Computed example of a mutant assay.
Amino acid sequence: MTETQTKYPVIRSGGVDGMLVSFGDRLSEPANRAALAFRAAVEAESWDGLEETSSTLVSCFLRFDPLHLSHRSLRAKLETLLNARDWYAATLPEGRRFWRVPTVYGTELAPQLAQAAEAAGMREAEAITSLSEARVRVQTLGFAPGQPYLGTLPEAWDIPRQSQLTERVPEGALVVAIRQFVLFAVSAPTGWQHVGQTAITLFQPEADEPVLLRPGDEVQFTATDAESLENMRRDPRGGAICEAIR
């Protein structure tokens, strides 16, 4: 049992109607796996009074109705569930998908590929191969509706964020730092390095499933060219295809 596992998981109250179960104090594969698996298990329990769950990089948050489910009762249920298995070695939830998302690397569409490649100790062509062949997992959603943080990239991509902000990257920008991708759901400033550009629309509020990617989904950002990407903009998924992970 590692040091992290001896300290965690930890249950914390989150105000009047919240409870947070944390599996670590920093991102790791076991902690993220535990957060995803534990959230799925909590939802499967369907406790009366539980109103909502969500997961972060290393935690599971529960919102509940304290008039129907007391803090003491919920904590007891959580402790029982936590003790039921080793969540750090848990199987990831069912219903996950594998997405292939067409991406233009570099060019004027993603102008920071060269500097990111240099930071990773690669030539641009090597960087494109490394990034486009990586199969990463949606570890959490955050910052903007439907915006995924994905990892873990090969060790060479443990590069820092920029010391200065890029004034704005467009919707669909693929950015990289600290062995993670972030795929931007909106146009926004960022300190991450813009290495790729997609045509995907991550948040579609009028769709039956407004948020396209889910925590636990796996994604590969396959290389394409600018002309093909422009043609894909007619498709809300930006040419992305998915299949069930079995």
Rank of each mutant, 00 (worst) to 15 (best):
T224P: 10
A37K: 04
A144K: 05
Q115W: 07
Y88F: 14
F221I: 01
D158M: 13
I178C: 15
S46V: 14
S46C: 10
P30I: 11
E209L: 14
V219T: 12
A207N: 04
A134K: 07
E167N: 10
N83C: 13
E133L: 08
V10D: 06
S187V: 03
V104D: 09
L82T: 05
A240S: 07
E108R: 14
R233F: 02
P205K: 09
D17R: 14
E29G: 04
A156G: 08
T140A: 13
L109E: 07
T198L: 06
E124W: 12
L165C: 10
R33A: 11
P215G: 01
E45R: 05
E45Q: 03
F143S: 01
L62F: 11
Q220I: 15
E43P: 00
W47K: 04
E3A: 11
R214H: 14
L50H: 08
Q193P: 06
T224L: 07
S55W: 12
E155Y: 05
G15K: 06
D158Q: 13
I200Q: 01
A173T: 04
P111C: 07
L113N: 02
A119P: 01
S187F: 05
F203A: 01
L50F: 08
P148D: 12
G14T: 13
G142I: 09
E45D: 01
F98Y: 10
S132W: 05
A117H: 04
H68D: 11
V138M: 09
E171W: 13
V219L: 15
E124L: 13
M122D: 09
R179G: 08
L67T: 14
Q204R: 15
Y8E: 07
F23N: 03
E124A: 14
F203Y: 12
A177S: 09
I11H: 07
A44D: 12
L213F: 14
E218K: 11
P210S: 02
T107F: 08
I11L: 15
A223I: 14
